[in-house]
């Protein structure tokens, strides 16, 4: 009798617990959650503040007044390598330093799961760059959201825009100020090949850290550092004295190669 009730109890317990366990994992890993990505702009070790003086790799004193960039085509990667690609209709973001909200990107309805990688593009991919005008709303609207981030004479978006002043930069005859200006774009050309400055950023959670957990009840918060001074170094030091401006020319490749590594993952918060 004793024996019987022991087995009976175990069975009963198992019947209760197993489905409960199963229910819980199902519950955790089904459905969708939102992922937040914070783009925290930095200048070297310090937080970036417009008008504050920093020193670039060439040893020049620089103050910033504009720091805007397009980020797009987000992909979340699980530990086993499977990827979730954010749909095209919600994968374009314009981050402006002076607009805090624009630097809090939210990826909505990401399938629940544990993610260890985050990939995105700096700039606007070539397909979108040549898309019909009716498919360019919000931050992609050249006369609204993308105002100042679009070249109308060499049709395409400015991927990264950095402007500021430096005593080492030459005087701009227009304003009488010592300014530098780096407007970088170029997606590879729509009919014949031109320079392609699109860069892909690939970030991974730090070894030993928890993965980024997307759950129905909430999602992770990726905290990214974006160091504007990285644009001035590695692999090539850029001097505001000798190359104070770069737009759609050949030198923009140097600028883009430099800023390709300005995004780093500082940490991930799980809910």
């Amino acid at each position: 009798m004793q024996k019987f009730s022991f087995w009976y109890l175990t069975l009963l317990l198992a019947a209760l617990v197993v489905p409960a366990c199963k229910d819980k994992t199902d519950d955790e890993l089904t459905g969708f959650g939102d992922v937040e990505i914070e783009f925290d702009n930095r200048a070297g070790d310090a937080a970036l503040v417009f008008g504050t003086e920093y020193t670039n790799a060439a040893g020049e004193k620089v103050k910033f007044s504009t720091f805007n960039y397009f980020v797009s085509n987000f992909v979340l990667v699980k530990e086993d390598g499977t990827e979730y690609v954010v749909p095209k209709d919600s994968c374009y973001f314009l981050c402006k330093h002076d607009d805090l909200e624009s630097r809090e990107v939210v990826l909505k309805n990401v399938p629940a799961g544990d993610y260890t990688g985050l990939k995105f593009m700096i700039g606007i991919d070539s397909a979108k760059s040549v898309s019909p005008i009716t498919e360019r709303s919000g931050v992609l609207d050249p006369a609204a959201g993308a105002n100042g981030m679009y070249w109308s004479w060499n049709a395409g978006y400015i991927f990264v825009k950095v402007e500021g002043t430096s005593p080492q930069a030459p005087v701009d005859p227009g304003t009488g100020e010592n300014t530098f200006q780096y407007h970088t774009g170029l997606f590879g050309g729509y009919d014949s090949p031109t320079l392609n400055n699109l860069k892909t950023v690939s970030l991974e959670t730090h070894h030993g850290d928890e993965p980024a957990k997307v759950r129905r009840t909430g999602g992770p918060h990726f905290h990214l550092y974006v160091d504007v001074l990285e644009m001035f170094s590695n692999p090539t030091n850029i001097s505001v004295a000798s190359n104070p401006t770069s737009h759609a020319g050949a030198y923009s490749k140097t600028v883009a190669d430099n800023y390709a590594d300005m995004f780093v993952l500082d940490h991930v918060h799980n809910p």
Partner: peptide, 9 residues
């Protein structure tokens, strides 16, 4: 210089 690919732009 062919800088623009579409009449709309």
């Amino acid at each position: 210089d062919g800088g623009v690919p579409n009449l709309d732009l």
